[in-house]
Computed example of a mutant assay.
Amino acid sequence: MSLSVLAALREYDCGHDLICLSSILGVLNSAAIFSLIPPNLKSSDGDFMTLLNIMNKILSVKESISASQFDMNRICEVANLTQIRHIIGPALRRYINLEKSFNVSDYRVQAHKKSGQWESIAKALLAGYSDNVFISMRELQEKNLLYARYNDKEDLAVLDIKSTLTRPIKQEPVPLVVARDVFYSTAVRSRAIISFVGEIEFDWMNHSTKRDLSLTAEEETYLNSNNRYDNVRKLYPNNIQMLLSNKSLKLTGRSDVVLNAELKLRKEMITELTFKLENRYSPNTTQYKNLADNLEKVSKMPNIFHPMIWRWEADKKVKITVDNNTSAKTCDIKVVGRPSEIAKVKQEFDSFLSWLSDCIVLRDPDAGKKIGI
């Protein structure tokens, strides 16, 4: 946090804001506080600005009255912050001590500068927490609810459930966040929990980073065809080093440029495959007859593929469309995604066909329906 405060004093003219944040964050070790804060103090920018709103609220009252009139219990009651009175007291004492220290330092003028703008505050925080930048896996065509540390794609995390940036499962998650705390529970060691987070924009990051993406041979060929890779390189001629070879894509440079280039290249890899569920067994065989009969039934109930469609959309951002083709007594399939994921989807359909050819009895879509008298 000290690096963030220093950056706020020297570069971003928001020294007072970071001193306030440092004061309250210094007495917090759990995000449970956010469930006790009234909605009017919560910020859409995330946890940091919410905490700053609390400090500003208390300090505005403190500075408007004399010291003899200041009553913490009364102030918290008026501000509807009684439930976090035990947090505000220590935070205010820390702030007073820090204020005294800065008033006799070389930064006494900068320490009183207020920005109130999340962008400036976020950039100051990034100076101290650049390693704690997490990107939603949805942006990387992966699982919706997971985040990945941007400088270590193997380090996965979820948002603390108490965070103000937590979204309902049907809403898109916040794309990019900076976090103060990253910790692992004893129950689940495979992914971390990120706490005290704020939403940031791509172009606010200016630290260097390196990304190494694994590709399939087909994906490498696809990027090289039709100048897809070269066209993206032309967008960033001087700000990034890009290398595509040996089924690997390496990007090195400033984080905001690297991230934009990576997302652009990921979009360029999206392609489409259409096919039918076909019976490729030799005629006059048991498997051919079973599959022919079962495909006709399946063509009348494409809704049986909905769980598969939802799973691939949620896990890998692969879009699958299944349409019944009653004239051909089969289903038409369209898959949109990265070639590597499309190949896995095709393999899953092939596995389904193999199972279907061995299936003796398949419930008719009209089975169990009552016929009107």
Rank of each mutant, 00 (worst) to 15 (best):
L3E: 15
E11D: 13
D13W: 06
C20F: 05
G26R: 07
I37Y: 12
L51E: 02
N53K: 04
N53V: 06
I54E: 00
K57N: 10
L81C: 01
Q83G: 02
N103M: 13
V104D: 14
D106F: 15
A111H: 01
K113L: 12
K114G: 12
A124T: 04
S130H: 05
E139F: 12
L140I: 15
L145S: 11
Y147V: 07
D152R: 10
L156Q: 03
V158Y: 11
E172T: 05
E172Y: 10
V174Y: 02
A179M: 02
A179P: 05
F183L: 05
S185Y: 00
I200D: 06
E201Y: 14
W204Q: 14
N206L: 01
T209Q: 12
L213D: 04
L213M: 05
A217R: 11
Y222N: 00
L235T: 15
K247F: 10
S248Y: 01
L251V: 06
T252A: 00
G253T: 08
N260T: 08
F275G: 01
L277D: 02
S282E: 15
S282C: 06
T286M: 03
M301V: 12
W310T: 11
K319F: 06
D323I: 10
N324S: 15
T330Q: 05
T330E: 01
V335I: 14
K344Y: 09
F352H: 06
S354Y: 14
G368L: 11
